Structures are given as structure tokens and as C-alpha cells.
Amino acid sequence: MNITNPYAQVGWAGTGNSNRSAPIPSIFGALPSPFHSSPTANSIHRFEFTASNPDVQNCTVVGPQSKTYFQILNNTPSQNSTLIQNGDGASIALIQWAHSSGALVEVRDIIRRQLVAQWLPLSEDAKYRFMKARDRIMVWVPQDGNVGLYTYGTTTPELYAKISRSEGRLVLEMSSTAIRIGLLECCVAAAVLLRSGRFID
């Protein structure tokens, strides 16, 4: 692992199969400020991945009003898959780690079962990952030790979500816009993938 590469921490460096067919973006310019310093009226919803043992693959996701929104369960003892359930115990996403061509991901009613390298393909320069969901193309971009999800193809990229660490816990912050258009489940699955420390491509 190249410790001087900030993208290596989210598994973007040294991956075998970057998708060379992904579109090359226009120059983004200055990305929007992180949520905590944004003056916009778009409210922010915070989700904490708690009781990680030892990592994001086995934890509870707690959101506003300390409500449990998701359970993330690693399939033991084989540890070949990670299941994401909603607060009612219904399965909403599945990640299969052991696959000859890389990890597979599926998000119920949103993302059909496919390789992570197809759903979250690396950019040509390996500096960010694209994500397609709800008929939208977005990008996950590392910035200041965090990873932000931005709109793609707009003159002023909008910050939809941010993955960060706070007091040792993984935190996902999402704008009300992102939740309203139905990106919560996809962002939780992406957070598990990007912060798993496992090979995803």
C-alpha cells in the first residue's frame, strides 16, 4: 500500500481493473465546502456506524432520533458476503466478496446484481469513483480525509453525502435532497464497500 496516496485508504489505489470506458469528466473546479461549513438550507442527516467489531462489516447504523436504520452483518464463518438489512430486518443489499472478477453488489429495487467495478468504476486517473443510481451519475471524491458524493455533469457540483470518521466511528452524512431522491441505501452500501478495507475491484 502506498501510504502517501490519500486514495489508497478507500481502496482506490492498486486496484486491478479500473474501468477505462468510464466518461472523462470536465474540470470540476473548486468542490463545495463540507457540510459543516455549508451555508445552504439543505438539511443534513447523520448516520453513525456503531458497535463495529471489528469493522464496518458488522455494525448497526443509527440515524436521527437514535433510531436504528440498518444492520450490517458479515456472513460468518465463511465471511464471503455482507448483508445489509433495514430497521425492520428486511434484506436491502448484499455484497459478495469472494468472486474471481471482484466483489459483487446488489441493492434491492435499485441496483441489479453486478460487479462493484461496474457500479463504482474508477476514473481514468484513479482519483474518484463514479456511481450510478436512480438514473443519476454521481462521483465519490476523496477530500480532506473524507469522501464526498457529488453530482456529476453540472457546472456547480452539489454535495449529496459525505463519509468520514468521528471518534473512531464511521459517519455518513446525507443531504435531505439525497435522501428524498432515494440514495440512502446506495450510500450505505457504498460506505461499506469503500471503508471495508477489502479488495472490491
Results as ranks from 00 to 15, higher is better:
C186E: 14
I200P: 06
D144S: 10
Y128K: 12
V171P: 03
W140Y: 06
L120D: 00
W119Q: 07
V192I: 12
S196P: 02
P121W: 03
T156V: 15
L122M: 13
L115H: 11
Y150R: 04
L149C: 12
I163F: 09
W140D: 06
V147S: 01
P142T: 04
P142Y: 04
L122Q: 02
W140S: 05
R129I: 02
T151D: 10
E158I: 12
G145Y: 11
T151Y: 12
R134Q: 15
R112A: 05
W140N: 06
D135R: 04
R134K: 14
T151R: 08
M174T: 09
A189C: 08
Y152F: 15
A126S: 12
V188E: 10
A117M: 11
G145Q: 05
R129T: 04
L183A: 07
G148S: 04
Y160F: 15
R198M: 13
G145F: 13
Y160L: 15
K162R: 11
L159G: 02
P142N: 09
I200M: 09
V116D: 06
V116I: 15
G153R: 09
E158T: 13
S164L: 06
D144G: 09
R165E: 10
V192F: 01
P157N: 02
V139D: 04
K162S: 14
K127H: 12
Y152T: 04
F130Q: 14
Y128G: 12
A190C: 11
R112N: 12
K127R: 15
V116F: 08
Y150V: 14
R165M: 13
A161N: 02
A190S: 15
V116C: 13
T156W: 05
A117C: 10
V116L: 09
E158K: 14
G153K: 05
L184S: 10
L149I: 11
L122T: 06
E158C: 14
A133V: 09
P157S: 05
L115I: 00
V139P: 01
G197E: 05
P142Q: 05
I163V: 14
L194W: 02
L194K: 04
E185R: 13
C186T: 02
C187A: 15
L122S: 14
L183I: 04
L120E: 00
G148V: 08
V192C: 15
T154C: 04
M131G: 07
C187I: 12
T155W: 05
S164E: 04
G153C: 03
I163R: 03
V141Q: 06
G182C: 01
L115Y: 07
K132R: 15
A126Q: 06
P157Y: 10
A126G: 08
S176K: 11
D125F: 05
L194T: 00
R129Y: 08
Y128W: 08
C187G: 03
W119A: 07
R136S: 01
A161W: 00
L115V: 00
K162V: 13
M138I: 08
T154Q: 13
W119M: 01
W119C: 00
P121K: 13
G182V: 04
C187M: 09
G197V: 07
V139Q: 02
L170G: 02
Q118A: 11
I137E: 14
L172H: 07
R180E: 13
R113F: 01
L183G: 10
T151A: 10
K162P: 01
Q143H: 07
V141Y: 02
V116Y: 07
